[in-house]
Amino acid sequence: MAWSVDWAVEVDGVSATEDMADYLMSITVSDKAGSASDSCRLVFDDTDGQIRLPQPGSALKVLLNQVPVFDGITDSVKASGNRNSGRSLSVSAKGFDTRGKAKEPQQLHQDDGTVGEFLTKLARKAGFTPTIDPDLGGIVRDYLAADGESFLHMGEKLARELGGTFKLRGTEAVLTKMGADYGLPLVRGLFQAGGGNVISYDIEPISTREIFKKTVVDYFDRSSGSVKREEAEAPAGPEVETVNLVRTPARDKAHAKEIAEARGREVEREGGTGRVTLDLDPTAQAEGLFSLSGARDGVDGTYRIDGVTHQANRSGGSTTDLGLKQPQDGAGQDERTA
């Protein structure tokens, strides 16, 4: 059967689309917020073992309907066979070179500097160019250290502390604020009988499992020689009474405030959750927004995209699966009279 989607693949900067046309069976691309790397998987028909075994380390770029959806490095090859269904060869790739220095332990400390300065030093030692949100990068810390921790680990650790997301793409390292608007395209979904681009939805627009009224962080105040607390309110609604006490104490008041505010942003994000499957939309990206209409009152609204998986295969199917969080614009609210 013919492909229903226009696809293209480049290997080491050279188009491989024509060479792959008779063998490529499926394409899967995943992009998850807060994860260290995007991923891609190409599956080939290897019935006669005619494909030369690919080697890790090749630059791979994938486009769907002429929109770039993946740019990374191949890192593994897997051969599968079944005497009833034949043989296949799958090539997996990550958004960065896993053989590089991203996961190499580093020894580095910094006194009286910013988070941005510290991460920039780590990034350059690991061979990455950093792009850091000014609000996060400008945070001042009296001491930061990587004691045998890799750049990858430190980036994820600081993102968790500061309420951000950290990702490695090629040779670029990106630290952004969770839920911030960076101009990503809005994805629209319409659910209706006999039409619309939404194939299915499974959404919990109100979730209370991770919701707290406020976050409390303890820290040691050197001037008074006593333990004090820093608090941050969360947009959880007046009916929520639970307080989130962070178990690990902060170093000082500023550090405690940063942690409390970051946990507050997490509470807002975890206010709802769900999944939606659409007809293929290669413009969808993690941390972008998705607007749903036609489902029902209380479910229609806008959501933060927490993860994206594009799937296409030569049997004719092509879909985009979205993981959703942070309901807004009416999602989770039904104003109708009971």
Rank of each mutant, 00 (worst) to 15 (best):
A159E: 01
A159T: 02
A159Q: 00
A159K: 00
L162A: 03
L162K: 02
G163V: 01
G163D: 02
G164W: 00
T165M: 07
F166Y: 05
F166H: 02
K167N: 07
L168V: 03
L168P: 00
R169D: 12
R169L: 07
R169C: 07
R169A: 14
R169V: 10
G170L: 05
T171A: 12
T171Y: 04
T171M: 09
E172P: 03
E172T: 11
A173V: 00
V174G: 06
V174N: 10
V174Q: 14
L175Y: 03
T176H: 01
K177N: 07
K177I: 07
M178A: 15
G179W: 00
G179P: 01
G179T: 01
A180Y: 02
A180F: 01
D181R: 00
D181P: 00
D181S: 01
G183R: 03
L184D: 04
P185R: 01
L186V: 05
L186E: 06
V187G: 00
R188Q: 15
R188K: 14
G189I: 00
L190E: 12
L190K: 07
F191C: 08
F191I: 07
F191Q: 09
F191P: 05
F191G: 04
Q192W: 13
Q192N: 12
Q192H: 14
G194R: 09
G195P: 04
G195S: 09
G195H: 10
G196M: 06
G196F: 09
N197F: 08
I199D: 08
I199V: 10
I199F: 06
I199E: 09
S200R: 14
S200E: 13
S200Y: 12
S200K: 13
Y201N: 05
D202I: 02
D202S: 05
D202C: 00
I203M: 03
I203E: 01
I203Q: 02
I203Y: 02
E204N: 14
E204F: 11
E204I: 09
E204L: 11
P205Q: 04
I206N: 11
I206W: 10
S207Q: 10
S207P: 08
S207T: 10
R209M: 11
R209V: 13
R209E: 14
E210S: 14
E210Q: 15
I211C: 05
I211H: 03
F212L: 09
F212S: 13
K213M: 09
K213V: 08
K214R: 15
K214D: 08
T215W: 02
T215G: 04
V216D: 08
V216N: 08
V217E: 09
D218W: 04
D218H: 12
D218F: 07
D218P: 09
Y219V: 09
F220S: 15
F220V: 12
F220A: 14
F220N: 14
F220W: 15
S223R: 13
S223L: 10
S224G: 09
G225T: 10
S226W: 09
S226I: 14
S226P: 05
V227F: 07
V227N: 10
K228G: 09
K228A: 12
R229N: 13
R229L: 14
